[in-house]
Design a binder for these strands. Structure first.
Length: 638
RNA sequence: GCCGGCGUAGCUCAGUUGGAAGAGCGGCUGAUUUGUAAUCAGUUGGUCGCGGGUUCGAAUCCUGCCGCCGGCUCCA
C-alpha cells in the first residue's frame, strides 16, 4: 500500500523528493520508486510538490510496478540500441506482469540475442545511470527525433494533443515518455527478458511488422524467481499437454485447424458438466431448446449477422438453389422459437437455453488448443421479458453465473460493466430509455450483491450494455467467464413483440447470456486451473483398485462391484506389474483414490486408501470408505 | 493472414563436415507374484511433415506448400 505522508509541517527545502525522503525515512527511500500528489505521478527526482500530502509509491503499488517495468523497458531499449545502432524505437510500455518494447531493425532477435541484451542491461544497471526528465515544446521534440530518424516517435508526437512533452534520458539514451521513471538505472533490481514476437506498428496489419521483446521486472530476485516458477508451472499445466497425457481430447492435423475431438474421458467429463448445467437451468426456470447447424442465408441477413459478423462466418453452401450458412451464433433460432406464437405478458419471462455448437472463422495464426477453435459449443441462453421483470432477471443471471463459477472452484472474480461511450450514441442500437433501464438493471444487480466492479464507458457492444465476469485461475491469470448482454438489435430487427396487460403490443427486452462462454474454452481453462487434478465428481475414473498379486484379483473384483453399485466410476489395475508401478501410474493419471488390496485387506475386508497427492491414508472398511466419499460423488449443490 | 521459431518412432528427444536412421518411455512377448511414485529381459515400431531441386550420395543444402509453437489483431 502506498505510504501517505502529510507535508503541511514538512521542511520543503530539499532539492528533490528523494533527498527529502532519505533524510526522513531511509528505509522507505530505498524502496521508493515514484510519488503521487493530487493524483499526479511524480519522479523522485522532482521537487517536493505544493500539495498537502504525498504518496510514496513502491513496487507494492500497481503504479509503482509500472514505473519499475517501464524503466526496465527503457534499459532494454538502451541496450538494444547500443548493441545494434540504427535500431528505431516504437513503443515500450509496462504491461500486466512485465513490459515490452517494439523495435524496427534489420537484425532478427533470437534467444542468444536476448542473453546478450540482458547482459548489456546488467551493465547499464551496474553503471547506475541517472535518469533525467526534460520538458520540451512538442515542435522541438519532433525536430529532435526527426534528426535522429526516429520516425515512429515523430508519428507519436504528431498525434499528441499536448503542446509540451517530456523526454527521459539516461546516458546516451533518450526517449519520448510521459514517465515517471526510477531516479537511476541502478535501482532496477531483478529483470528477465522472456521472448520475442512480431507485432505490427500500432497493432494494424497494414503497418510495418516490428520486433517485440517481452520481459519482466521485479523489486527482488525472490519475486522474479517466484514469477518464473509460476510461468513454468503454467507451462506444465498446459491443457494441450494434459489433454494428451490424460487422454481427454485431440486436435489432429488431418481434421483441420481449430477442430477438436473429444476422447472418451474428455467426453465423459463434458457429459457430466452438461448434465449439471441442464439440471441447474431447469431448476432456475429455463427451458431447453435445440436448433440446427445451418440456416438460410436470409435468416442471417435478417439478424444482421451477414453485415456485422460477416468475416466470422463461413462461406455459403447451396441447397436447391437457396443459399445456406453454418451458424456462428444461436440467437436467431431462439428468436424464431419466441416468434412461433403471439406472446402474452403472462408468459414472460421466457428463458431459452441451449448448448449450441457454432462455427466461426478464425485466422490460422490465432488458433490455440481448445482455447481458440473454429467449432465450439456455447452455453447460450436468451431471456425475453418485460421492463418490470428485468431487474430480477439480471440478478438471477448474475447469481447463476457466480454459483456456477464457484462450483468449478473459481473464487476470485472480477466484474466489468461495459456501457455506451459518452458521445456517439448514434452508433448504438436501442433507445436512450432502453439503455437507461438496461444499464441501471446491470448496475443494481452488481450493487445488490455487494460486488465491486469496473465501469467501462465505450466498451459496450453496439447492440447493448453488458456485464463481463473474469475468473482468476490458480496461477493468477484472468479468463473470460460469464457474460450478460442486452440485445436491442434482434428485438428490433425481428420485430419481437408481446401483448401487454393493456392489450397493446410492446417490444420485450432480450438478454443474451453465456456462463461458460464456450464449453471448449472453459474446459481448456479448467484443465489448467486444476492441473488435471479434477474434483471427484468430474474425474473420469474416481477410484482405481490395485491388487497386489494375482491371488487378490477376486477380492479386487468384489470391491469393484460394491463400488460400482454405489455409483462410483472405477477401474481395476490387474496388470502383472509391481505395486509401485501401479501406484505411479495411478498418480500420473491423477486418479483421486487408489485402493490397494492384498492379503491383509482381503482377510480383514478392508481397503488401503491412497488419496491423490496425499499419500497413504491406511486401511479402512470398504463401507466406511464409500460413506466418506459419497457426498463428493455428485456435482456441487446450490 | 503477418513476423519469428520449430517439424526425426505413439510420446520426449539425440543425430558431428552431406556418407548404413538412434536412445529413453510406451506397445507386444516372456520371466518375476510383487505393500505405497518406474522389476528384469527380449521384441516391435520411421514416407526423417509433404512436393520439387542441387549432389555420385540429402534427416542434413536450396525451394514451394502444409502443420505446430510464441506473438500481432479479434474474440467465446
Amino acid at each position: 500500500m502506498a505510504n501517505t505522508i502529510d507535508l503541511k509541517s514538512e521542511d520543503r527545502s530539499a532539492d528533490s523528493i528523494l533527498s527529502w525522503l532519505e533524510g526522513r525515512d531511509a528505509d522507505l527511500a530505498r524502496q521508493a520508486v515514484a510519488a503521487r500528489a493530487d493524483g499526479r505521478l511524480l519522479d523522485l527526482t522532482a521537487a517536493l510538490p505544493e500539495a498537502d500530502r504525498i504518496e510514496i509509491l513502491t513496487f507494492d503499488d500497481e503504479a509503482g510496478r509500472e514505473v519499475v517495468r517501464h524503466t526496465a523497458s527503457h534499459a532494454m531499449a538502451q541496450a538494444v540500441q547500443q548493441l545494434h545502432p540504427g535500431t528505431l524505437l516504437a513503443i515500450g510500455p509496462a504491461i500486466e506482469d512485465g513490459f515490452y518494447y517494439d523495435f524496427d531493425t534489420s537484425v532478427t532477435f533470437g534467444p542468444e540475442d536476448l542473453e546478450k541484451i540482458e547482459a548489456r542491461m546488467a551493465e547499464i544497471v551496474k553503471a547506475a545511470l541517472p535518469i533525467a526528465r526534460k520538458e520540451m515544446p512538442r515542435a522541438e521534440a519532433i525536430q529532435f527525433f526527426r534528426e535522429r530518424s526516429e520516425k515512429y516517435k515523430v508519428e507519436l508526437l504528431e498525434d499528441l494533443p499536448d503542446e509540451t512533452v517530456t523526454l527521459y534520458s539516461q546516458g546516451d539514451f533518450v526517449d519520448l515518455c510521459r514517465g515517471p521513471h526510477l531516479p537511476s538505472t541502478g535501482r532496477l533490481k531483478a529483470f528477465k527478458l522472456l521472448n520475442t514476437a512480431g507485432a505490427y506498428w500500432r497493432g494494424d496489419e497494414r503497418n510495418p511488422m516490428l520486433q517485440r521483446i517481452y520481459g519482466t521486472a521485479f523489486a527482488t530476485q525472490e519475486q522474479l524467481d517466484e514469477h518464473l516458477r509460476l510461468r513454468k508451472e503454467a507451462a506444465r499445466r498446459d491443457h494441450r499437454l494434459l489433454g494428451r497425457e490424460l487422454d481427454l481430447f485431440s486436435l489432429p492435423e488431418q481434421l483441420g485447424g481449430g477442430l477438436a475431438l473429444w476422447h472418451p474421458k474428455g467426453a465423459l467429463m463434458r457429459y457430466l458438466i452438461e448434465e449439471f448445467w441442464r439440471k441447474e437451468h431447469l431448476k432456475r426456470g429455463y427451458e431447453l431448446v435445440f436448433s440446427p447447424h445451418i440456416a438460410r442465408a436470409r435468416l442471417w441477413e435478417s439478424s444482421g449477422h451477414l453485415s456485422f459478423f460477416r468475416e466470422g462466418m463461413y462461406g455459403p453452401m447451396m441447397i436447391e438453389d437457396e443459399e445456406y450458412r453454418i451458424k456462428p451464433m444461436n440467437c436467431p433460432f431462439h428468436v424464431l422459437i419466441y416468434k412461433s406464437q403471439l406472446r402474452s405478458y403472462r408468459e414472460l419471462p421466457i428463458r431459452y437455453a441451449e448448448l449450441g455448437t457454432v462455427y466461426r472463422y478464425e485466422r490460422s495464426g490465432v488458433l490455440h488448443g481448445l482455447l481458440r477453435v473454429r467449432g465450439f459449443t456455447q452455453d447460450d441462453a436468451h431471456i425475453i421479458c418485460t421492463p418490470d421483470q428485468i431487474h430480477d432477471e439480471i440478478k438471477g443471471c448474475l447469481d447463476f453465473g457466480l454459483f456456477l463459477m464457484h462450483a468449478f472452484g473459481y473464487e476470485q472474480l472480477e466484474m466489468d460493466l461495459s456501457v455506451r461511450g459518452e458521445a456517439d450514441h448514434d452508433k448504438y442500437m436501442g433507445s436512450d430509455d432502453e439503455w437507461e433501464i438496461a444499464e441501471r438493471s446491470l448496475m443494481e444487480a452488481l450493487e445488490s450483491r455487494g460486488l465491486a466492479y469496473k465501469r467501462a464507458p465505450g466498451e459496450a457492444i453496439f447492440y447493448g450494455p453488458k456485464i463481463d465476469i473474469k475468473l482468476k485461475d490458480a496461477m493468477g491469470r484472468l479468463w473470460q467467464g460469464p457474460t450478460i448482454q442486452f440485445d436491442f438489435n434482434l428485438t428490433s430487427r425481428f420485430n419481437m413483440e408481446y401483448v401487454g396487460a393493456d392489450g397493446e403490443r410492446h417490444t420485450p427486452l432480450m438478454v443474451h447470456r453465456a456462463l461458460f462462454g464456450s464449453l471448449d474454452r472453459f474446459f481448456g481453462g479448467y484443465i489448467e486451473h486444476t492441473g488435471g487434478a479434477f474434483p471427484l465428481w468430474l474425474s473420469p475414473v474416481q477410484v482405481r483398485i490395485l491388487p497386489i498379486a494375482d491371488r487378490h484379483h477376486d477380492y479386487a473384483q468384489q470391491v469393484a462391484s460394491q463400488l460400482r453399485e454405489a455409483g462410483v466410476r472405477i477401474e481395476v489395475d490387474d496388470r502383472k506389474a509391481t505395486t509401485g508401478a501401479k501406484i505411479r501410474d495411478g498418480e500420473t493419471q491423477k486418479i483421486p483414490y487408489l485402493l490397494i488390496v492384498g492379503d491383509r485387506e482381503q482377510s480383514a475386508g478392508t481397503v488401503a486408501v491412497r488419496a491423490r497427492s496425499e499419500g497413504d491414508l491406511g486401511p479402512k472398511p470398504l463401507a466406511e470408505f464409500i460413506a466418506a466419499i459419497r457426498e463428493e460423488l455428485g456435482p456441487p449443490r446450490s
